[in-house]
């Protein structure tokens, strides 16, 4: 589904990703862990086409397409979704209007008809239940005045609405209390199918108790330096990242 080869990317001339490789197949869950500033969010930004970042080397293919050739909205409509680490507020734009526009853009891209009002409302109701999202929130402007946790929940709600084939969750667990974490993780698990995949970026092993990864990667200094199964996450939790640093720098 996703093949990243020797990816280099920089921001304001500073290289952040320094030759990153990653392959994700349908049905898989990948966790990416790593110390602050390693480049995890940068990877998410580059995959989704944030224009602040410049790709200097490497290739990314997504379902056989050259992802780097596509505009951000095309990537989204091809089925890539990012749950932002810091979701932005958009005053004046209602969640309902925002979601309906997004869904219809996706449908237009896929040459489908626009969604009917009844289907849309049914979809909203169903997905709100999935992440136990309050009506109060969907009646407001996008993220406006939402608490940190509400914003994260809103990201998963949008993910459920848009039904992506590849979801990237960037620190979706941070700012969530244990109940909210369980609800969000539950939502992600329910959306899991054999034909979609998830990349979970996290700091903490905690989330991985709920969303069980097939692979755990350690991203350090712009590269994936270690890959293992879910036990690697436990090891990192226990020992921190220093031993990784030593391993990498020792080489």
């Amino acid at each position: 589904m996703l093949q990243i080869k020797n990816l280099h990317a920089s921001i304001n001339g500073k290289e952040i990703l320094k030759g990153l490789n990653l392959t994700v197949r349908p049905g898989e869950i990948h966790a990416i862990m790593g110390p602050n500033g390693a480049g995890k969010s940068t990877l998410a930004s580059v995959l989704t086409g944030n224009p602040a970042f410049e790709v200097t080397h490497g290739t990314v293919s997504f379902n056989g397409k050259d992802l780097l050739e596509l505009a951000p909205e095309q990537r989204a409509n091809e089925g890539i979704f990012l749950s932002f680490q810091y979701p932005v507020e958009i005053p004046g734009v209602s969640m309902v209007n925002f979601m309906r526009t997004a869904i219809n853009e996706q449908r237009k891209y896929r040459q489908q008809e626009t969604i009917s009002a009844t289907d849309f409302l049914r979809l909203m109701r169903e997905k709100k239940e999935l992440v136990e999202m309050d009506n109060k929130l969907t009646n407001r402007s996008v993220n406006e005045g939402f608490s940190g946790g509400e914003k994260k929940r809103n990201e998963i709600f949008q993910m459920a609405m848009l039904d992506p084939s590849l979801s990237i969750l960037d620190e979706t667990d941070s700012g969530l209390d244990i109940d909210a974490l369980r609800i969000v993780a539950n939502g992600v698990n329910k959306l899991k199918r054999a034909d979609n995949a998830t990349i979970v970026i996290t700091h903490y092993q905690r989330l991985l108790d709920y969303i069980v990864p097939d692979f755990v990667h350690v991203l350090y200094d712009g590269r994936i330096v270690k890959t293992g199964d879910k036990n690697l996450a436990l090891e990192l939790e226990e020992k921190g990242y220093d031993w990784i640093k030593q391993e990498v720098e020792g080489k």
Partner: peptide, 12 residues
């Protein structure tokens, strides 16, 4: 950031 957020949801 607001524009990119919309872009990421498929909105030009």
């Amino acid at each position: 950031d607001q524009i990119f957020y919309c872009n990421q949801r498929g909105i030009s």
